[in-house]
């Protein structure tokens, strides 16, 4: 097995009096996709927001290559190479596509970031066509590509994607999932994918786990969970889906 890029250990976190995550452990390795599936309210987004530093942790630890990042501010964690593509894309709608990408590499040398942006345009030719357009005027799929591109502009080690398929047409979803595989295969990124579209997420996953009421209830390879009868029943639409 290759090196662990991100390790989450017995993570407990929540909002105010409500505890959402009750001891979640997982790890992400170089060149691997870890998919987390689970119902609405299982704590998937809370998990990503806690890793990103928006939600203070109550106990447990989050380590990047062995070093704890559990008490760092979101901007510090982002600069350390853990990039979170948030739910709902959150592009800077008044700024152009190119400006969004440049801000993704904020704080890094301009020439390096510009070279990465050229590479991002190769991955997403659609963004190149629209480089001068205001991000808010693009379609949902294009905004999702931009949100991923913005994270890639920093050349992250770990990419965390929160519901990238949400609200998108099936063809666009397929395109985005193909791209996620390319990022793993060509750039060796560690990818944490949170999805309600469980079938698609498990198909491309190397490893996967089911998050249920703030706990990891099942884990295995993507193929194992895809064929596990309990998972099929709960998330893949019963027997028809196998």
């Amino acid at each position: 097995m290759s090196e662990e890029l991100l390790t989450v250990e017995n993570l407990v976190a929540g909002y105010g009096a409500v505890e959402v995550l009750h001891g979640v452990s997982l790890s992400i390795r170089k060149g691997q996709i870890l998919s987390i599936v689970g119902a609405n309210g299982a704590g998937k987004s809370t998990l990503l927001n806690t890793i990103s530093g928006f939600i203070p942790i109550r106990s447990g630890d989050i380590r990047q290559e062995g070093r704890s990042i559990a008490k760092q501010a979101p901007a510090v964690i982002a600069r350390a190479g853990i990039r979170h593509v948030p739910e709902g894309r959150r592009v800077f709608s008044e700024l152009s596509v190119e400006e969004n990408l440049q801000l993704g590499g904020y704080g890094q040398p301009k020439a390096v970031v510009q070279a990465r942006i050229e590479h991002i345009y190769e991955l997403f030719p659609r963004l190149l066509e629209r480089r001068g357009q205001a991000a808010g005027t693009m379609s949902g799929g294009e905004q999702q590509m931009l949100a991923i591109g913005r994270a890639l502009a920093a050349d992250p080690k770990v990419l965390m994607l929160d519901e990238p398929s949400m609200g998108l047409a099936p063809l666009v979803v397929a395109e985005i999932f193909r791209l996620i595989c390319r990022l793993r295969d060509e750039m060796g990124m560690g990818i944490l994918l949170v999805e309600q579209n469980a079938k698609a997420a498990l198909r491309i996953a190397d490893l996967a786990c089911v998050l249920s009421l703030g706990k990891v209830t099942m884990h295995g390879t993507g193929a194992e969970l895809l064929h596990n009868p309990d998972v099929v029943d709960a998330f893949l639409g019963g027997h028809k889906a196998a």
Binding site: A75, S93, L95, Q102, Y106
Partner: peptide, 19 residues
């Protein structure tokens, strides 16, 4: 532009490393 980004989408800006 980073200041504008931080005002439009403070969380997304933080995820870009903007304080």
């Amino acid at each position: 532009k980073a200041m504008r980004a931080a005002s439009q989408e403070p969380r997304a800006a933080a995820l870009c490393g903007i304080e």
